[in-house]
Structure formats: C-alpha cells, structure tokens
Design a protein around this nucleic acid. Structure first.
Lengths: 409, 409
DNA sequence: CTGAAAGCGCTTACAG
DNA sequence: CTGAAAGCGCTTACAG
C-alpha cells in the first residue's frame, strides 16, 4: 500500500506534467467538438456525453466535406489533394475518431480475423499453439481472437457460432479430442457452414473426423513421436514400461499409445508387456494414478520406466515417485510428451518429446492463407524429436528387471 | 441471438444420421435454398456459392413472412404464434442461418464483449489472469477476446484502437509495466476515449498512471507480498539476501523491491545490505544473472538467499545454482513470486508468494460490471500469501553468514 | 476531385 | 399479430 503512495509521490511529478495534462486536453477536445458541430450534428451532440461514439458524419462536418470524402481519405484507397486530406485528418484526430468496425464490416469485406479455439488458455501447450497462430496472423495483418471451451461441447458450438456471426474468416480448432458421433457431426457441420460462407476451418493437432470435409488438417505425428521415445527407453534397457495418462478415444493419446505398442512389438516384446493406465491427462491425474500404481506393487514396482501421456502427467508422476521414497531415474525412468517450457526445471529435468507447438499454430495459419481454395482437404504432418535430459537411465538390476522381457538390448 | 439457432443446429445434427450424412444434407439444404428463393433472392443466389452468407431475407422468403417477423422470432423478444414461430425456425434451421453480428451490432447495443490485453499468452501468470477474466465474462454471457502485445507499445495501441472499433465494452490491461511519459499519455488517452464511448478501462495488476482517470484499478499488494516473503527469509536467519530480477520503472517489480527493502530496514539492517540485481524478468535473465553473481564470488557467495522477482526468474536461478555445484536450500535459499502452476515441481519445490491470478481477472470483470458508473476511479487491492515449500532453510554457517548482519533473529 | 445516393443486414418504433 | 419503413455507420459505384 505504502508502495502506491510511494510510487505516486515519486513518479507523479512527471505524470502531472504529461499524462494528467493530456487527459484534460483530450477532454477539452471532446467538448469543443460537441459545441462546434453543424446544425444536425449539434442536435446529436447535445445527447452525447457518455456512450456515444464519434461518427464519420461529425468528422465530415468539422472538416467541411462530405462523408464520402472522409471515408476516402481515411481508408487511403484513393488519391486525395493534400489540403483536403489534411483537413480531414485533423478533424478526425481532434475528435479522436475511430471507424465503427461493424458498419465497415457490413459493407466491406470485413475485418480479417482468425479465431483459435482451445480447451483452456492456461495449458502451456495450447497457449503456445495460440501464440503461434497469433504471431502468424499478426504477420499477415490479421486480428487473432483466442477463445476457450473448457472442454465443453456446447460452449465450443457457441464459440464457432459466434465466429460465424462475427465473420471470422478462419477458425482454428486446437488439440486432440475424443471423437464420438456427436463430435463428428459437429465438426462436419462447422466445416460445411464455414465453407459455405467463404470461411475456413483448420483442425490443428487433431485429424479430420470424417473424410472429405472442407477442412485443413495440421497435426503432429504422435505415433512416430511416441514410437521414438519408447524406443529410447527400450534402448536404455527397459522392458517393463508403463504408459500413464491414456485417454481412450482421444485422437492424440490413442496415437501415442499406438506408437508405444508398436515400438514394444518391434522390439520383440509380447503384446501383454504393454501396460496402459487410462487415467486421463493433467498433473493430478498423473499423481493419483502413479501413487496407486506404486502402492499396488508395495514398494517393488513391476516396471522400470514410465511413459507419461504428456509433461503435466509426468510432473504428477515425478511427484508420486518422490513421495514413495523412490528416485528418478535411479529407480524408475520417466519420460513425458510436449516439452512444455518448464519441463527442464522438473526434478530431474525431463526427457521428453518436443512438439513445436508454436510452429504448429503458425503452420495452421500459413497453410490456410496460402492458396485458400486448394488448402481445404489437405493434411499436413509435423515432425517431432526427442529432447534428452536427466530422467532416463538404464534400469536398476533387480526383480523388476528380471521378470521383464529379455534384457538383451 | 446465436444461442437460438445454435441450439437448433445442434438438435438437427442429432436428428440426421451421422456426421458424413449430415454434411451432405446440409449441402443440399443450401442448394435448395438458392433454387427456391423468390425473384430478388434468386438473382443474388445465382451469384452465391462460396463466400455468401445466408441472410435474414432468405429465411423470410423461405418461411413466407417478412424479415421483421424473422427478426422477432429469432431474437425471442416478442410473443409469436406457435405456427409462425415454427415456420421461421424451420426455415432458419434448413438454411443454417446465423445472424450477421455486424449488422446486429450496428443497430442494437452490440455484442457484450470484453478484451483482455496481455503481454503474451504463454506466460503462466498472464494466462491465468486471462482465464479468470474469461470465466467471469462467460458467467455474465459476455464474449472474451484475448490479445497479446508482445510488450510492444505500438501493438498495444493498435489493439486498443481495434477494440474501440469493434465496440468492446470493457478493456482489461494486464500486468505491471514500465511507466514512462509515453505510457502515461497512452493510458490516459485510452481511458478517456473508452469512457467517451461508454466503454470501460480496467487496469489489472498495475496502478493508475495518473490520478483521476476514468479507469478501474485492481491489483495485488506487491509491496506487502514482498515484505512478507522477505521477512520469511529473515526469520529463517538470512541477512544477506539478493533480489534478482528487478526491472527498474516497472510498477510491479518496483513495489516488490520496495517491500524487500522495507522488510530489511525493519529488521534493523542497513540500507546497504540490500542488493538488487536489475536484470529483468524471465527464466533466461535469472539464469544469466545468477550465473554471473556466482562467478563473481568465486564459489563463496557473499549472500545466503535469493529473492527472485518472479517464479520464472526463480527457475533460472535454481538452474544456475545447480550448475555451479551448489545446493538449494542447503547452500542457498531461493524464493520466487506468483506461485506459477509448476512451481511445486521445481527442484526443490519453490517457496513463493501466491498471487491469485485467476481471481484477479475475475475481480476485474466483476467490479467493472457492477455499478459501472461508480466503478471508474476506484482502486482495489487483492491480498497474497506465502506458500512454504522446500527452497528455504536457515543459512549455512560460514563466511557468508559472518559478514552479513547480526545473526540475532 | 468530390457529392448524393444506394445498399450492406439487421432491429425497432410505427401503423395497421 | 405482422408489414413497410426508417435508420444504424459505413463504402463504393455513379455522376458531376
């Protein structure tokens, strides 16, 4: 509290001179505008004050030209004599005029706007994708709107509806999903509706739920990434690897599980050696599932490594292992997925699969904007790679290993 | 509004067979609509195909009523005979009509929209605040738009301009800032301009740069939080505490430094005992600064604890300490600020100050929406508290302690 | 070079 | 109960 008074006392001398004086000047500008309009404008102006925006009419009156001229000067699409131009710009500045985007959109092509729909903004992975979309959109001079569904289908539907109403030209749906019939229907509908109005749907980090819908798909090769990290574990000598954090039906997770199983099979391990814990995503899910797993085995786990469905699950797994008095990687190796920004600060630094999330977002926009006609229906796969840190080492000798597969690698 | 048609669209989807079938059916609906419109509509329809949205006119024609009736049925503000109502709804559904938000905004009050402006969405703290704003906005049926400035004043200005154009009724500027004259002027202008058009500006996590501007302020008591965590370090016996991650001129950081200094002074330590490293925020800044600090002291640091400007800086500090072969908290204690989601997963789990970021965002919206007239100009301070984890313990005996203050506490 | 006018897609008094 | 009409604030052919 003392800070405020302190800060103000310190910085306010300057503020007085600059900001405060500015505010007054601006206020005067408005008053002046109201009093100086012509007949018709003046009438409106009297009803002004709070809640009325300055319109092009007022700028025209003040500049002594028609609204057409103001429009032309401000949009900058026409040649205009310097004198007229100056008068208009001056009037606009004095009134602090900003065009009404709605009126403009109604007649023109509308604002170039892209909407990113994520489950939640606080998820580091989604945030990175959103940042990528935004960065790329900004590059092209487009506005980017980020919206969160909270995982609720109804809200997702409302958001897309909203985007259609607002005239978004590009809607990007981000992240893996559980594909049920309702979902397939919904997305097919989005794609069709957006396409019918000349807008575009991009599925980012998830496949097309039905073939031949007018949507662009950009996703990571989850199966390949999972295969690679599982192989990494296998080459370190692990044979009993548990996958914690599956989410049955979810496109991204199912693909990772598939990659995990494929790697196991390729190394000659029987299908039964796969152990998938379907506990879903999130730190707390990982913590809970791993705690249970450790408890079941009564201190002598029958596995030597854990493949966490994503880095947040890995965080929970790490905590559970520590809480059980075990060490990573000495007793149990752990790998994650995504390489979230703080994964290198985990204890120990996490070995994981780097999915260039921001690039995924950028690619979504770039591809959709390039050759719009042809983009729909294409499917792009982005590569990933392993980031080796300190959470993996060869399994310890002991019962866990002995009852695993053949320790040949 | 969209709610009506949206729900209906969903309902219809289920009625239809499956995703794919749905898409086809919808496609037919469009074709049918084009071919079945009346004279004028038919003309337009021929130019249709890609890029044309269905309008209220077409719905009216198909339902055999006037556009006024369609408007009334869809907006749901008027009583309508069931028969008419059914015909209109049916037509709207068949054409998959969504109202043009711009046209609607032009005549009506406009969509209730709040914009959150943050530095970047990938910062966990900002993301949490944004999520709070969004959650609270959703509660009130408002749309929430998240935009990022990347720390660029020009972009911030453009975003606010954009929000004015779009008719946002609430603009929330999030996070501490470096207050220079240009900034003060800018914000005073935003406040005035927004206020003049009946919109509202909320400064969230930063003070008002000039007194008496029409803006609502909601922020944390940074000085109190910093004072508390510094005292925590002092009570553990630390006397040589370095503040790493100051950002001179930044409102939030200056307040934290002030709280740090105040706590030191209250414990009877001389002003010189304060050591502030002005390296700015971010993990890499913390890593770099701490590495340099450790290097300077050649293995025998003249401090026993570090107060990191925020948790990301703390992550960098932790890494630097580990890289130098020292341990936290045995050799050096470290505390952060904000209690970012993964702070408990740091090595060791970080003792820090919990700033309820989501609540800050919620409060911003709640306060702005409640009693709008009176809200402007008020200033709210939210409390914080210390979260004790494992990164602090009494300082080790040795040179660092001996040349500190008197070890009495 | 610049106005007057039409029209974008809606909503809402105003009259039946 | 429901149409015809005015009007929201712009842009853009269309005529000077």
């Amino acid at each position: 509290m003392g800070k405020n008074t302190g800060a103000e006392a310190a910085g306010q001398g300057q503020a007085e001179a600059a900001g405060q004086g500015r505010a007054e000047a601006a206020g005067q500008g408005r008053a002046e505008a109201a009093g100086q309009g012509r007949a018709e404008a003046a009438t409106k102006a009297s009803a002004a004050g709070q809640g009325r925006r300055v319109t092009i009419r007022e700028v025209a009156d003040r500049a002594g030209v028609s609204i057409a001229t103001v429009s032309r000067v401000l949009s900058g699409n026409y040649e205009t004599p310097a004198a007229t131009r100056a008068r208009v710009l001056r009037a606009a500045r004095e009134l602090d005029y900003v065009a009404n985007a709605h009126a403009r959109a109604l007649v023109g092509a509308g604002r170039k706007m892209v909407a990113v729909v994520v489950r939640q903004v606080t998820s580091p992975f989604y945030a990175q994708v959103a940042e990528g979309v935004e960065a790329e959109a900004a590059t092209h001079g487009w506005l980017c709107l980020v919206a969160a569904t909270g995982g609720d289908a109804q809200r997702e539907l409302e958001i897309v509806q909203l985007m259609r109403e607002e005239g978004a030209r590009l809607v990007v749906l981000v992240g893996g999903v559980v594909e049920d019939d309702a979902y397939r229907e919904r997305v097919a509908h989005y794609a069709q509706a957006l396409d019918a109005s000349g807008a575009r749907l991009v599925l980012c980090g998830r496949p097309a739920p039905v073939p031949d819908i007018p949507a662009l798909v950009v996703e990571f090769d989850n199966e390949a990434g999972a295969h690679a990290i599982t192989s990494h574990l296998l080459s370190a000598g692990h044979r009993r690897i548990v996958f914690v954090g599956a989410l049955s039906g979810n496109t991204a997770l199912d693909a990772r599980v598939a990659g995990y199983r494929a790697a196991l099979a390729e190394h000659g391990l029987p299908a039964e050696s796969a152990h998938v814990v379907d506990c879903g995503l999130g730190r707390s899910a990982g913590l809970r599932a791993m705690t249970a797993l450790l408890k079941e085995s009564g201190g002598a786990p029958d596995f030597t490594a854990v493949f966490a469905g994503d880095d947040m699950v890995a965080a929970g797994v790490l905590r559970a292992v520590a809480d059980a008095g075990l060490r990573v990687p000495e007793d149990i190796s752990v790998v994650g997925y995504n390489d979230v920004p703080l994964a290198e600060d985990f204890d120990p630094p996490l070995t994981t699969v780097r999915t260039p999330a921001e690039e995924l977002g950028r690619a979504a926009v770039r591809l959709a904007l390039r050759d719009p006609e042809h983009a729909a229906g294409t499917h792009h796969l982005l590569g990933t790679h392993i980031v080796v840190r300190d959470s993996v080492q060869p399994p310890p000798p002991g019962p866990a290993l002995s009852d695993g597969g053949s320790p040949t690698a």
